[in-house]
Design a protein around this nucleic acid. Sequence first.
DNA 1: CATTCACACTAGCGCTTGCTTGGTTACTCA
DNA 2: TGAGTAACCAAGCAAGCGCTAGTGTGAATG
Lengths: 190, 190
Amino acid sequence: MNVMNESPRRKELIRLAAQLFVQEGFDRTTVRMLAQEMGIKSGSLFHHFKDKQEILAAVIEEGTQNALIIAHQSIEQYPAEPEARLRAMARAHLETLFADRNAHVVALFEWRRLDPAASAHLSHLRDAYEALWVEVIDDALQAGLIHGDRFLVSRFILGALNWTVRWYDPNGPRTPDDLADELVGMIMAR
Amino acid sequence: MNVMNESPRRKELIRLAAQLFVQEGFDRTTVRMLAQEMGIKSGSLFHHFKDKQEILAAVIEEGTQNALIIAHQSIEQYPAEPEARLRAMARAHLETLFADRNAHVVALFEWRRLDPAASAHLSHLRDAYEALWVEVIDDALQAGLIHGDRFLVSRFILGALNWTVRWYDPNGPRTPDDLADELVGMIMAR
DNA sequence: CATTCACACTAGCGCTTGCTTGGTTACTCA
DNA sequence: TGAGTAACCAAGCAAGCGCTAGTGTGAATG
């Protein structure tokens, strides 16, 4: 087994697993299906991962790491412009959501399948990401751009954004940036 | 087997199944777990339902039927007041969502486990419900209460509302009506 | 040249799954 | 009273599950 390995091979396997988890759901995806998709036999799978759980954790970790990095990069461009920060954060959210769609769908809808240990570890990553949001929203509230309870507002915005994976068609006429701008426009006081 | 049966017994079994599906997820809920929760043996379960799939369909059907009825009752009280209609619709949505929480969580997150036949049948129910929303939102747009693309606005609102099942605590200080009012306040032009 | 290593294979164990079968009990109603 | 039926049970089958043990191979390392 290959515990802490960041090889390209492992990354590719994780990508394939994410795709299958989205298609079938974690529980219905068997190790034999995973192996076939990866072009190996089911036994060989356990050379790369300790067990099926570890594959799930790896998928979710990758997605969340990427989201954090991109969000950071996006808002640090505008240290003192609340509206630009809000817009950049929403854009970054949708950008990662659809660039890395499979991993994020797994993170959003299969989180509960994580065992407690993995869940605890990954919760920190997610909390760090949500803290970024709360920060940006606090700025926007203080600047009078939006109004309402900071807790509820951030939950509503994240809900609206996350739910897009259920209906948004990347091949349609609208870009993720269009969506982000529309949402920001919808909630901003004029 | 007991195909089209609306007996109280069946209703109770469906309620118990919904609870387990939420706790464990559909795939991880075994027929033996269901039977034990129902106080019968696993074989007896198939006297009430053709197969496991039928239980899932029954759970989702119940929840969606209720939502439709309550939404109808709520908005027909205000035939010509766009703001009241919007608020009533949001309140009704959250009211059913938490009154009938288990069934709705299953409907939202286990829909994809339905086989194609059941999915086709239930899609009509869901579409009827969403049509109500589009109607109410069109009225609000025309009245100038909110602004934006009708399609996107309704998706964002439904996303924000549905996502509440992931974070809202019914034992906390806020009522579902508080949430609905806060959301409407957040998006309404002033 | 000998050893080690990553990576893959074959074979299958022990267990759980959804569902079936054949029969029993309790109740309703002519 | 006795026929019909809804509701249940005990037993188990066939298939599929995650995972393990033991082995082979070709490339890198000493």
